[in-house]
Design a protein around this nucleic acid. Structure first.
Lengths: 344, 344
DNA sequence: ATAGAGTACGAAAGCGCTTTCGTAAGCGCT
DNA sequence: AGCGCTTACGAAAGCGCTTTCGTACTCTAT
């Protein structure tokens, strides 16, 4: 009989159902070796009593851990919080819990967080955010993840693809191309790029797309200002100031993510430079506030919540032999921050 | 000796240090009954080997669970993601893990998430977001939390104060007063309020502050339009449209949070109504993008990350007998979205 | 020297579950 | 009737830790 004031245990359910502990466990886990009749009875009793398994005991005993570890650069960056939102949604449906860890955009720290999550025995690991150029760190992360998978862990990454695991990746290059084409189509030729943290693969990919679009028009990135700072609003401000100072005749600024674009816009406003009349601005990601900026931001939409959902869904499905890759759609969303290049 | 390819266990550390399992446990937990010398040796070995305790085993054995459950309305709302960011920061310092659950602004669901977290044996529960007027739900949540605390759980809430537990609360009423005073000082008299979800205590408190400020000038909220929708950008849009339709002569709109203010601004922009020349707009919270909107938003700053940090710190400290309450500062940040009331 | 108190440590129980192993019952076959 | 095989279940081990209890040892007071 359930002890008063105590947590409901599996034995309590088993007793009520008139079966042994082992049978009850099997029945609730859906494992075979239990007759349909008995299994139904156990499930019924469990539901009636409102039984919830103790995840600690379950995991300790060797069952799969039901918690998902999600590593993001920084949760208060909308790009990541929107991804997290999708992950949490699926997790709630599946009865999983989501643990969030910050990597703070630092490869070393990301590795540390990863190891910590593994040590903490999470069952599924999701890593969101760009990969790094740093081969050593990526290599260590890769082997750490491989070991984790060998031990039965599930892994998926979001927005990167260099770790030898299942990945949900936007086509950053195609997005970059779309932006380049859009601006070129509007007559822009003196285009500057506010690029994010150097060393991030995302930066390289998006940049490559822009370069590809330019080369179609006989232009090259080499001749254009590409200012690296980092993927934040302040980074955007820094980049914008440098661009305005060294290349005041630019007619368009491509920010490699929306956070930077917001920073760029704020500098332009402060300087009284009208957007898009004198300067066009493009972002990347389409975080939800992008549509509500003034001027509203032209950007490449990535379905962040959907990416989060896909990643967890992917990780949940039995692993195939080779890493799977799920591309995500992307759409150039043209809003008010871009317009025809001003006449000379 | 550590088995190859296996997780490092406490016994491994104990053996290497030449002590028993019990002593090793005590040493690492900082419990007494171990000589300084032995304790140092154990800690030393533990560090060398890179030992991380298995949290499942630890919790199962009766130790305090090292995971923090954080319930937010919606993680992709900047207000909450900024709070979460603060919580995660402290958690990382303390070696705790943070589990995030969505309540989706629904009292019933919040209760469900709460129960789930408790069933999942988290050690600390943090609930962020407004309380609800619904007495039944609040009562159930309160008794659930009380039971959780009796069982040794730690609890703190952020931005609400009706659950009989430690709370980190902004002075919403004073914030409302500051807004009211600011607008009145600018000469506004026909002020409309875009209020959030009815039934949230936050809405009532902020509204009360505004009312208090008005009454000092012989005005009353009764005579003014207060439009309820919900605490989102879309909610702000709906409210703004209704205000413009029914009270086109308003000269200022108070949005009870920044998300709504962003929605309000987007409608005003779409209608070509200049801010602040024809209409002033105020928000509440000062989410980080507020400063970068155009026009930049006048709002009441709440230190969200700090609130998250305080809440976890509070929960971590030994409980006092009575619920503690930590007020958070708030500052009226005057930016470009408010200006003198237009002449009649 | 000896009793009593205190200190430092080890042995072992137990947290709630999963899983392995053992066994009884039921089946078809010779 | 006797054999092996399968199926449905229970007993018990064990996951890695914390904590209780017991014991050897040291110290102080008589």
């Amino acid at each position: 009989m359930p002890r008063p004031g105590a947590r409901l245990r599996l034995v309590d359910v088993a007793e009520r159902a008139g079966v042994s502990l082992a049978t009850a466990s099997r029945a609730l886990a859906g494992r075979e070796g239990v007759s349909e009749e008995v299994a139904d009875r156990v499930r019924q009793v469990s539901r009636e009593l409102g039984y919830v398994a103790n995840p600690y005991a379950r995991t300790l005993a060797g069952g799969a851990s039901s918690t998902v570890g999600l590593i993001v650069h920084q949760i208060d960056d909308p790009y990541f919080s929107e991804i997290a939102s999708g992950v949490i949604e699926v997790a709630a449906e599946e009865g999983l819990l989501v643990q969030i860890a910050h990597s703070g955009r630092d490869p070393e720290n990301e590795l540390r967080q990863l190891r910590h999550l593994i040590a903490q025995q999470v069952g599924i690991i999701l890593i969101a955010g760009s990969g790094y150029d740093d081969q050593r760190v990526e290599g260590e992360a890769r082997s750490e993840l491989a070991a984790f998978q060998r031990a039965g862990g599930r892994v998926a990454v979001i927005g990167r693809h260099a770790l030898g695991v299942d990945a949900v990746v936007p086509d950053n290059e195609a997005g970059g191309r779309a932006i380049g084409a859009h601006l070129l189509g509007l007559g822009h030729r003196r285009i500057a790029v506010a690029a994010g943290t150097p060393g991030l693969t995302t930066v390289a990919d998006r940049l490559a797309g822009v370069a590809a679009a330019l080369s179609g028009h006989g232009l090259s990135l080499d001749g254009l200002p590409v200012v690296h700072s980092d993927f934040t609003r302040d980074g955007g401000r820094v980049a914008a100031e440098r661009i305005l100072h060294h290349h005041p005749d630019s007619t368009a600024i491509i920010a490699l993510n929306d956070a930077m674009a917001i920073g760029v816009l704020s500098i332009l406003r402060a300087r009284g430079i009208p957007v898009p009349e004198r300067m066009s601005v493009v972002g990347f990601d389409d975080v939800s506030v992008a549509a509500d900026l003034a001027p509203s931001l032209t950007t490449v939409r990535l379905p962040m919540p959907e990416m989060g959902r896909m990643a967890l869904t992917l990780a949940l499905k039995p692993r195939s032999t080779r890493p799977r890759r799920r591309p995500t759609g992307h759409t150039l969303v043209v809003r008010d921050s871009t317009g025809p290049a001003p006449a000379r």
